[in-house]
Design a protein around this nucleic acid. Structure first.
Length: 887
DNA sequence: GACCTGCTGCGGGGTG
């Protein structure tokens, strides 16, 4: 750290604690930053707040040292604390430390140790009689047992572990002494059910100690003030402390050597392997001075957007440079924790040249040796790109550097747009959740287990959270009824009578068994367990989806964890493998989320395109994209900001070869919205006249494929894309019931309808799905007013279809002029969207006619098309989406 | 000429 302004008088007035802390800084040749001082001052005034700072060390100390200063100031007023004159002495070994004072929440277990380390020395040097511990799921059982007896003075834990602690009967007594809670990486939690769980836990803690101070720490976010308000809850104002430690941010792009021949579509980016290899070799691998051989290498992270892409790229890099074997590693969420831990350790020791990874390394411990980051393919969002860039340059004065690797031509524009937006500070917002009743239901049982609750008091407490600030009496009563007897439909089943009312009015768990089962299912993360991939020796490599393994027979090879494996046998939920001798193998596909291009980035892309339309090409990316954009403009047009472009294209060739007609529309709203828009337009078309319409989409637009040209005029297009009747039509054309049925699985799990089973005896994903579907049907029939059903419909609309964004898109389009361009060839913008259609045709072995039939059926039954399409595809090619990696 | 996808995160009883 460098120098900073003098200590503010406000803080300096405060005292011994501050002197201790200054001494601690001084011993390191540091002086505190202004934002840290502002945070301490606000803390000492008894305030809560949110600290916004882009890097690690500074913000951790800003948040931690407030309580330390306070404790020193109090000089022993608290338990067996610091005595005047006895400060320098270490406390007697057996003396009991002070009771719980500070709680630090981290969304990631991996961050706990780092956090502990960063607070330990100032606390020790202040001579405080504090015990500092962590508690996460992987803590030893003896530690957990001890903490059940008595909590340390400072505890680092996760939201889930905190909730567990709140579920023990004597929780109140153990948390009453708490003075401050710090929530790290709050931007990661806000907008998720984990965040709501955190809000509820904080409300509980504040209920026991109204003077409790809450401090959040957040990365850059479009809605920081709202983030603070959500964290602090209703009517609980607080400060927003802006850190000024912004690091330099460098976003560059690998420009394809032959931009003219660069593909118009695609996502793997394999053709960029050579260029990336060259880039990696350029600086990475340079040894830092004075380090031993094999260590001290500065490496890079290569972020991909999917796990299978990471596997493919890892393989390709090794093939390109076999001398790098052992210096390149792979890291993603389906790899076993032990595998990932090893990679993280090697990276930290500077023994790796490059780690190919997914979002699994977005957060977590900062690795000093990482000096550069690659983003392979679309960054999807500005915050995401900035976050990833921030994984590099963890040294004072070092810049964060990210190198974009486009996988198709328009990603050149995306990287240029993302850089503009990032440097202008236009970062996405995160929307807080509104009243997820499944989380509330879980919380009610937790509170019953945690010493019991009185109904009116808990209701008021819950309403002080942002998430449940507008909870109605009906919703509250429904939630109470749900945990008391399972709602209307499940009264006959005692396991759903989870809480009972004592004579004194206190609600407690119905039995100790209920409480135990509840603790097993605390939390809001509901990922399916998957099948364990392991060697015969028992060594685990990771997990893979049941659907993938179902296609493999013993002897089949697949790529996993950067190895080519051969299936030996499947037993229960584990897949036994051995190293394969041959190299060619399929690559597994995981069914993950499909995150759309963010609104912010989409807007920035539109601006870049508008520049291009006006002949402005600034920067190497736009220069490289120039020929492509020229083609777009020459053949059709580049849509202006207030223009809705419709390309009506007659594609030559037989229908079965992708020929026919397609109309392509470009709202630039991300693929989820386009999926909705495509389905909506197709539905409205087929309603007006009998015809087969197939919709495809990508992040830029959607296409309607028909056998004959649609021949619609502007008025007809306006009708198709009218916001009027949006919800009704969407409910008709997408099988929202089916989507909701699937969404309900998560909700049923969080609300406690489905218990995941005991550790080590997980039910398979299918079993879980089956019982959640059963519940969905039973409730739909016998308890249609069950609010969890409504919630699953709402979650589908909001999370899966982005209904708000969809409506806004339709409204925006209403004000745009429609330009219809007739064409007989695919434009650069249209090609990738059309290719989505072609793909499904080529991969199917079914006859064209039966496919058409199925599509008609699909439109009629308005079914979700994905499972059908997969089955069709797989008949010829094996498992859906699995490709052979060719050597 | 062109393509072939889809992230992350946590927790625990032993009588089930």
């Amino acid at each position: 750290m460098s120098s900073s302004p003098e200590l503010s008088t406000e803080v300096a007035a405060a005292s011994t604690g501050l002197r201790e802390v200054s001494r601690w800084f001084g011993a390191r040749g540091w002086s505190p930053f202004a934002f840290q001082q502002r945070a301490w001052a606000a803390y000492l005034r008894g305030e809560s707040g949110l600290i916004h700072a882009p890097t690690g060390l500074g913000k951790t100390l800003a948040a931690w040292l407030g309580p330390v200063i306070e404790a020193v100031d109090e000089g022993g007023a608290f338990g067996a604390g610091v005595q005047a004159g006895a400060k320098r002495r270490r406390p007697a070994a057996r003396a009991a430390s002070e009771p719980l004072r500070v709680l630090w929440l981290t969304p990631l277990r991996a961050l706990a140790n780092d956090t502990l380390a960063s607070i330990e020395s100032p606390v020790r040097e202040s001579g405080l009689n504090w015990s500092i511990e962590k508690r996460t799921g992987d803590s030893s059982s003896s530690l957990k047992l001890r903490q059940k007896e008595r909590l340390p003075t400072a505890l680092v834990t996760t939201p889930e572990s905190l909730t567990l602690l709140l579920s023990y009967a004597d929780s109140r007594a153990r948390f009453e002494t708490l003075r401050a809670v710090v929530v790290d990486e709050w931007h990661e939690l806000m907008g998720t059910k984990r965040g709501v769980q955190t809000e509820l836990a904080l409300a509980r803690l504040r209920g026991w100690n109204p003077r409790l101070r809450t401090w959040g720490v957040s990365a850059t976010l479009g809605n920081l003030e709202q983030a603070r308000d959500v964290l602090l809850g209703v009517d609980n104002p607080g400060a927003l402390i802006q850190g000024e430690m912004a690091k330099e941010l460098r976003i560059t792009t690998v420009i394809p050597k032959d931009a003219e021949r660069f593909p118009w579509a695609g996502h793997l980016g394999i053709r960029a392997v050579d260029e990336v290899v060259e880039e990696i070799g350029r600086e990475a691998g340079t040894r830092r001075a004075g380090t031993s051989p094999g260590a001290g290498m500065s490496g890079c992270l290569l972020f991909t957007n999917t796990r299978s892409q990471a596997e493919i790229w890892f393989k390709r890099l090794i093939e390109a440079r076999d001398d790098w074997l052992g210096e390149i590693a792979i890291h993603h969420g389906s790899l076993d924790r032990s595998v990932r831990d090893r990679v993280e350790r090697l990276l930290d020791e500077g023994r790796l040249r490059c780690v190919v990874c997914t979002s699994s390394l977005d957060l977590g411990v900062d690795f000093q040796p990482v000096d550069r980051v690659f983003q392979l393919g679309s960054p999807k969002g500005i915050a995401r790109l900035v976050q990833r860039a921030g994984r590099s340059g963890h040294r004072p004065g070092a810049a964060s550097a990210v190198i974009g690797v486009p996988t198709h031509s328009f990603e050149l524009v995306e990287f240029a747009a993302a850089r503009d937006a990032a440097l202008a500070g236009r970062i996405e917002s995160r929307a807080p959740l509104d009243r997820p009743l499944d989380v509330l239901a879980q919380h009610l049982v937790t509170c019953a287990c945690g010493g019991g609750f009185e109904e009116p008091a808990l209701r008021d407490e819950v309403r002080r959270t942002h998430a449940f600030g507008s909870l109605t009496d009906e919703q509250w009563s429904w939630a109470m009824d749900f945990v008391r007897r399972g709602g209307r439909a499940l009264t006959a089943y005692p396991e759903y009578s989870r809480i009972v009312r004592q004579d004194d009015g206190l609600w407690i768990p119905a039995s100790e068994r209920i409480a135990r089962m509840h603790r097993l299912s605390i939390g809001t993360i509901t990922a399916e367990p998957g099948m364990t991939v392991q060697y015969a020796s028992g060594r685990r490599l990771g997990t893979i989806e049941e659907g993938f393994i179902a296609w493999l027979t013993p002897g089949a090879r697949f790529v996993f964890a950067g190895k080519v494996l051969e299936l030996v046998r499947v037993r229960g939920m584990s897949v036994v493998v051995r190293q394969a001798k041959r190299r060619s193998a399929t690559v597994p596909r995981w069914n993950g989320g499909r995150f759309p291009l963010s609104s912010q980035l989409a807007r920035a892309v539109r601006e870049k395109l508008d520049d291009a339309r006006r002949g402005v090409f600034v920067g190497p990316e736009m220069q490289a994209a120039r020929p492509l954009l020229r083609v777009q403009q020459a053949w059709s047009r580049i849509p202006a900001p207030e223009e809705l472009l419709v390309e009506q294209i007659d594609v030559p060739g037989p229908e079965a070869g992708g020929g026919g007609s397609c109309a392509v529309i470009y709202p630039f709203e991300g693929r989820l919205v386009h999926e909705g828009l495509g389905a909506l337009a197709a539905y409205r078309l087929s309603r007006s006249r009998p015809m087969t319409v197939v919709a495809t989409c990508n992040d830029y637009g959607f296409a309607l494929h028909t056998a004959k040209p649609l021949g619609l005029d502007e008025r007809a297009w306006r009708g198709l894309l009218s916001p009027e009747g949006l919800l009704d039509d969407l409910l008709h054309c997408l099988n929202t019931t089916e989507l909701a049925r699937r969404q309900f699985r998560t909700i049923a799990r969080v609300a406690g309808l489905i218990v995941p089973g005991f550790p080590g005896q997980r039910k398979g994903a299918r079993q879980l799905q089956a019982s959640s579907e059963m519940f969905f049907d039973v409730l739909s029939e016998f308890d249609p007013a069950n609010l969890l059903l409504e919630q699953s419909r709402r979650e589908v609309l909001e999370a899966q279809l982005e209904i708000g964004r969809l409506r806004a898109a339709l409204e925006r389009m209403e004000g745009q002029g429609v330009t219809i361009v007739g064409l007989d060839r695919l434009t650069p913008l249209a090609f990738p969207i059309w290719a989505e259609h072609l793909r499904s045709i080529q991969l199917s072995s079914e006859k064209w006619s039966s496919m058409v039939e199925r599509m008609v059926m699909k439109l009629e039954s308005a079914a979700d098309d994905r499972p059908a399409a997969r089955q069709g595809r797989s008949k010829r090619k094996g498992p859906a989406g699995y490709r052979n990696v060719r050597d």
